[in-house]
């Protein structure tokens, strides 16, 4: 469990990145911090592994204040996925994945062997192990980033705009794979994104942030979409736009879902609870 307890971050010069923020991220759940740039979401994420120290307040992991932990050891115990992977350009894919275990003292041979398994796990051909990051596509680099974060088998994964640098088709694919991986691994995942659809696609709980990391609304994706707390959240999630206002049209006994512009988006299947009319 990750707990933010009234954290505040003020930079010299008076800029307030986080005005006062509290949140509990339950173990084994996926929580998304969503907001536009300047909302302080990345600052919050970085407080967890002490890349940023709060001016006041505390971040606790399983009731231990992170300030009492050695930052380097703390960071090695937490998986971190960055936009575009944040890979080391001069090391091969396998060496990148093996970085943290090797830093922690595992032999390079063992760590590389484990890396091959992790590559398969994130959907990469182990034949890519000896390539360099720049020889991979954006989506492949992103997968390597996820594999590297998993290499030390951390309980917590932090993801900073993890799939922001890849095209929409690959992004959806990566999101689906992450969901499958999470169903299997059950990590505690905290991620930040400016893409509300990504938050809805991945998170158990979504936290919508205003400037200064003020919480505008938190809840499951369904709750937020069903009842945006105010105009800010409504505008942010696009409530009321053609894309979000779906209706059903009947065609030859099939029920087709269309959006506000009458564009079809899918077919409604009979649901056991609802029952066919």
């Amino acid at each position: 469990m990750i707990e933010f307890d009234a954290v505040r971050k003020e930079y010299p010069g008076g800029t307030v990145a986080v005005a006062g923020f509290s949140l509990r991220v339950p173990s084994h759940s996926v929580v998304a911090l969503v907001g536009s740039s300047g909302s302080g979401k990345t600052t919050l994420l970085r407080m967890v592994n002490r890349m940023v120290e709060p001016t006041s307040g505390a971040v606790r992991i399983d009731d231990v204040d992170v300030r009492s932990l050695d930052p380097v050891g703390l960071r090695r115990s937490i998986g971190y996925v960055l936009q575009a992977g944040g890979l080391l350009p001069h090391r091969t894919v396998a060496d990148n994945v093996a970085t943290v275990p090797v830093l922690a003292g595992r032999s390079r041979r063992e760590a590389r062997a484990d890396a091959l398994g992790l590559l398969e796990r994130v959907g990469l051909d182990p034949a890519l192990a000896d390539r360099y990051p720049a020889q991979l596509s954006g989506g492949q680099q992103q997968r390597v980033g996820v594999a590297r974060a998993l290499a030390a088998d951390p309980d917590i994964l932090l993801m900073d705009e993890p799939f922001g640098a890849v095209d929409p088709i690959v992004r959806e694919q990566l999101q689906a794979e992450l969901r499958a991986l999470q169903a299997e691994l059950g990590k505690t995942i905290l991620f930040v994104t400016h893409d509300v659809d990504e938050a809805f696609a991945l998170a158990d709980e979504v936290v919508v942030l205003r400037a200064g990391a003020e919480i505008a609304q938190r809840g499951t994706p369904t709750e937020i979409l069903a009842a945006p707390a105010d105009d800010f959240v409504a505008a942010f999630v696009g409530a009321g736009t053609a894309r979000r206002t779906l209706r059903i049209r009947e065609l030859d006994g099939r029920r087709v879902v269309v959006d506000g512009d009458d564009r079809p988006t899918g077919v409604l299947e009979a649901d056991a609870r609802e029952g066919a009319p």
Binding site: M51, V72, L103
Partner: peptide
């Protein structure tokens, strides 16, 4: 050396010395 590479190396738990030796110097 790209800022992101340095930031990412810190984020995954490199000490400053490991960062200098393993990342900044070779690059």
């Amino acid at each position: 050396v790209a800022r992101e590479t340095v930031g990412a190396s810190r984020a995954i738990g490199m000490t400053e010395w490991q960062l200098v030796r393993g990342v900044e110097l070779p690059l």
